[in-house]
Amino acid sequence: MKRLIRWALNHIPRPVLQRMASWTVPVMGLFYRGRGVECPLCGSKYRKFLPYGYVRSRANALCPKCLSLERHRLLWLYLTRETDLLTAFPRTLHIAPEVCIMRHLKSHFKSRPGQYLTADLESPLADLHFDVQQIPLEDNSVDVVLCNHILEHVADDRKALRELHRILKPGGWGILLSPVDRDYEQTFEDDSIVDPDERTRIFGQYDHRRIYGQDYIDRLREAGFEAADIDYAAALPEAERLRYALPEDHIYVVYKY
C-alpha cells in the first residue's frame, strides 16, 4: 500500500489525482476498518489511517473517507475550537482548498453567497483560478485567508505574502501553514536544482522550491503581518493526539492591524 500511494503521488498529475482519490481511497479504507483512530472532520473510525508521502511514507496519515491528513485534522481542531469561522460568516478566501475542510465550509456558507471563495492555480474544484503571486482581488477585500502548503511551491514567496497581506482587511486574520523543518535556522532554497528527482530527494517533493526553517515566521512578519507561532498539538491531551493521529506541526496565524 505504501509503494502504491507513493507511486501515484509522484507520477499522476495533481488534478487527475484529486478526481481519482474520491473513489479509490475509500475502497482502500475497507481494509483498515476498526476503532484505533478517529477523524475529527468526518467522524470515521479505523484501526489506523492509510500511509502517505512522496518520498518516505508516513504511517497513520490519510483518512480513507474524507482524505484528511495529519495537518488537516490539526487545523480543523484549531478552526472549530479557537476561531469563529464556523459560527460567523466572515468573507473568506480559501486558497488551494483542502477538500476535507472545504466541504464543511461550503456547507456553512451556503446561505451567504459570495462570502466563501475557493481558489487554486489549476484545480477543477476551485471557484477562482490564479497565481497567488498576483491575486485578482481588491485591496482589503477579505476577512479571513486560508492558504496552506502553497508558499513552498511558488517562485517568489515574499511577493505572494505581500499579496495576501494586501487583500486582507484591517482586523482580518489568516492561517498560513507551510512545512517547517526546525533543524534549519534559515530557509534553504536553490533554484539551480531543476531535475525533478533531485528536487524530490532534497526538498521532499518534486514541486517544492524551498525548505522553511525557524525563520518562517520572520517572513510572515516581513510582509506586514503580525504573526503567532502556536504549538497547538502540544496543548491538547495526549489521548486526543493519539486518537486523531495529530502531527507535531505548528499553527501559524497572521493578523492585519
Score class of each variant (00 low, 15 high):
Y78W: 14
I230Q: 07
S44Y: 11
M28Y: 11
L85I: 12
K110L: 14
S111T: 09
D218W: 03
I202D: 03
H94W: 09
H108V: 04
K45P: 03
R33P: 05
P40F: 12
T83G: 09
S192M: 05
L146D: 03
P170C: 07
P90Y: 11
S107R: 15
G174R: 09
G204E: 05
I95W: 01
F89M: 15
C147V: 04
S57A: 13
Y184K: 12
G204L: 04
P40I: 00
Y184W: 13
L151H: 06
K169A: 06
D157G: 09
D181E: 13
Y184L: 15
R3V: 08
R73E: 01
I217W: 07
D183G: 10
E70F: 09
E238V: 03
A96Y: 09
R201H: 03
I230Y: 08
L86A: 12
I12M: 11
D157M: 00
R19Q: 15
E222N: 01
T187K: 02
A235G: 15
Q133E: 15
M20I: 15
L4V: 15
L30S: 04
I202S: 01
V144T: 11
A228M: 13
E82K: 15
P51H: 02
Q134D: 01
W7A: 11
W76T: 08
R221S: 06
G224A: 03
L77Y: 02
A235N: 14
E185Q: 13
L161N: 09
H11Y: 13
V132E: 03
R103Q: 14
R81P: 04
I251A: 04
Q186E: 14
I150T: 10
D197L: 08
L117D: 06
R209W: 06
I135N: 00
D120F: 07
D181C: 07
L105E: 10
T87C: 06
I167L: 05
E38T: 12
T87E: 15
S192W: 02
P51I: 03
W23L: 11
A96T: 02
G53S: 01
L79P: 01
W7L: 12
R243F: 04
E98H: 07
L79K: 08
P237A: 06
A61T: 11
H208Y: 07
R35Q: 13
I95G: 01
P97L: 08
F225R: 06
A119C: 01
G34E: 08
N140I: 00
P170Y: 12
A245E: 13
D215V: 05
G43S: 03
V145A: 02
L69A: 10
A119L: 02
L67V: 10
P113F: 07
R47H: 14
P64I: 02
D229I: 02
N148S: 12
H11P: 06
Y252H: 15
P40M: 02
L177G: 05
L62K: 02
L246S: 01
D120V: 00
A155G: 00
D195M: 04
H11C: 04
D139T: 13
F89N: 11
E82M: 13
Y78P: 06
G29F: 08
S68N: 08
V16L: 15
Y46K: 08
Y257N: 12
A61K: 03
F130N: 02
L128E: 14
D139R: 14
V37Q: 02
Y78I: 05
S178H: 07
R199N: 01
A96K: 01
